[in-house]
Design a protein around this nucleic acid. Structure first.
Lengths: 359, 359
DNA sequence: TTGAAAGCGCTAACAG
DNA sequence: CTGTTAGCGCTTTCAA
């Protein structure tokens, strides 16, 4: 049986007091006789009354709704899921609730979801901005919705931003491979319209340049979406006349795809006597991937990665956002968190061939 | 600069019409002169007007808020993250937005989060119920909040539920190990107060019973929370005088911990010449885990699992919930989805010893 | 086709 | 300490 929700009026009637007294009790405002309050409490319990926050919000105008939005690329991705958890934890400490959405790297969808968030009057939004212009957010910003960008900066938007040192992370990864004797290093990257991806490519190129090398177009693949495409791409790379001896992958999904592709080719796995289906006497291809991922340390060989800390990113973003919601009007802040190279094995494999051939 | 949000009144003034006309245009109601509508549209754009859904809701009473809540154990867990994504996708098709929360398997926290959801007048909640009584949800249910339980049934609550065949999945896993010659099978399980865990244990016991065996207390560990505890537990199991030749793990996190523990003991990894730190000449311990997880197929050996389909679970739950929100008042429905044993290698390892010793 | 009035559930600002 | 009045932004109802 669905009953009408009891209102303060109902509670007031039952308790035999005025509506205002109920309001005061409900909101724990001081200055209510304990006995009166007790009567009201009793009525509240009896009726199963719960405050209607929407109505409350309507009246209290500028007051925060204690609701924020979180828009990530894909909440099913462990990286964003961990980030989301950190945001949620921070929000809960403030009795704030989190609306979640996945943009799927699609600007129209991002817009649509943000719109839905704003229609519910969120206090703020933490956003992994997709490529393209975010000018449409300006309007919301001017209406007081606080915005923090994460993972990538938004174009045409003055907002706090939390990033990691993508370029240096990629640089360190490639230096690491170079340090282990590699000269022919393949690059498998996500869509170039993603800022972080461009940064990582720049780091890749910078490390090569230091060695007097330049990215070899035959060893570079852009625009990979997901593991399947990465697996196919790596398969073509290693079938070339002079294949790469090492691979740099620009994110977790691509790294997983690369492992898949290399395993299929017998170029990833236990060092000798493995069931490699071809290239029996090869020592395998070295691999460093951007992004930590579950079980990276459990593979054979364990995967060397450039790790970001998604929980720290989420917590930082939440901290910035709530500061703004609390009235911080200082100029825009950019936070850059460090990445960390975790050497585990896959990145320390020596080149299979004699190496040292000129770039 | 933060401006006051424009209201319908503002739009009406600018457009030179009445507030009601604006309302009609905003809600695409028929019966407005195209020219009048155009004037209003122009004013709306000029002012950057957006409808205040909270106020709208207030007046439209019983109408849905197009907001649902999703409460999982931990959104950072890939299983729940994937489920969440499926729910979100279903919601988006209805312009419905999703509030997310993690209960951390804590009843008080569950209550708190659900409370926050209901204060925002969600139309419904998809819930992974923690152990304990959920009677407090009855009140919300009577006020019209639809509830669907997922992964575990809720006690003292009449609600639609989406489950998987936990018992049979576990049974199949253990039969599989028995079929490969194992008789001493270890059990590493999560907290017994979780319904699904009890079901899985029952399936484990049932498979053993068919073989005339009973669970050996020395090989059974309950109450494991997370990979670290599982790793420690497996370490003690295998140090026993007569260790298990195979392990059944009741969820993804425990499976990962087991792999960790076994790797440390040199009992998991490439079959020979591995860098096993002890037990050099052992063939390793067989392992089947409940739950699929990323990279399970990439480990050495690849991990045999009983897979659930979290996306299907989420989609099913969303379907049930939205049917209720749309007015389906039929009696409670329980959906049970099948699990699938995926043999990959770790579950097909033969017992290290001569085996065949009596239970 | 358009508009005026009333009121959803609540709180701010005053009275008593 | 408690109550009255007005009104948040919108929709419902009815009248023009």
């Amino acid at each position: 049986m669905v009953t009408r929700r009891p209102t303060m009026r109902d509670v007031a009637r039952v308790a035999g007091v005025s509506l205002m007294t109920v309001s005061r009790v409900v909101n724990r405002e001081p200055g209510v006789q304990p006995e009166t309050a007790a009567k009201v409490e009793r009525a509240i319990r009896q009726l199963g009354y719960h405050r209607n926050d929407a109505a409350r919000q309507l009246r209290r105008q500028a007051q925060p709704t204690q609701t924020i939005g979180l828009l990530v690329d894909d909440i099913a991705n462990p990286f964003f899921a961990t980030l989301a958890r950190a945001v949620e934890d921070a929000a809960r400490l403030r009795s704030c609730v989190v609306l979640i959405g996945s943009s799927n790297d699609n600007l129209a969808r991002e817009r649509e979801v943000i719109s839905a968030f704003c229609a519910r009057r969120v206090d703020g939004v933490i956003l992994v901005p997709v490529a393209g212009s975010h000018r449409f957010l300006r309007a919301q910003q001017e209406l007081g919705v606080k915005i923090v960008c994460v993972d990538r900066p938004a174009t045409s938007l003055e907002v706090d931003t939390v990033l990691v040192d993508n370029r240096h992370g990629a640089y360190a990864a490639v230096r690491h491979l170079i340090g282990h004797g590699h000269r022919r290093i393949g690059y498998l990257g996500d869509r170039e319209d993603i800022w972080a991806v461009r940064e990582r490519y720049a780091g890749f190129a910078e490390a090569l340049a230091e060695e007097g090398l330049a990215p070899d177009p035959a060893l570079v693949r852009h625009g990979l979406r997901g593991p399947a495409q990465a697996a196919r791409a790596v398969a073509t790379l290693i079938r070339q006349p002079v294949p790469p001896t090492a691979i740099f992958a620009t994110n977790d999904l691509i790294t997983m795809g690369v492992i898949d592709g290399l395993q299929d080719a017998g170029l990833y796995g236990p060092s000798r006597d493995g069931a490699g289906r071809r290239g029996d006497d090869t020592a395998g291809v070295a691999l460093v991937g951007f992004d930590e991922f579950p079980l990276a340390d459990k593979l054979t060989p364990p995967v060397t990665v450039v790790a970001q800390d998604p929980a720290a990113i989420g917590a930082t973003a939440a901290q910035l956002l709530f500061a703004r919601i609390d009235g911080d009007t200082s100029s825009r802040r950019d936070v850059v968190l460090l990445t960390r190279l975790i050497a585990r094995g896959s990145g320390e494999i020596a080149p299979a061939d004699g190496s040292k051939q000129p770039g």
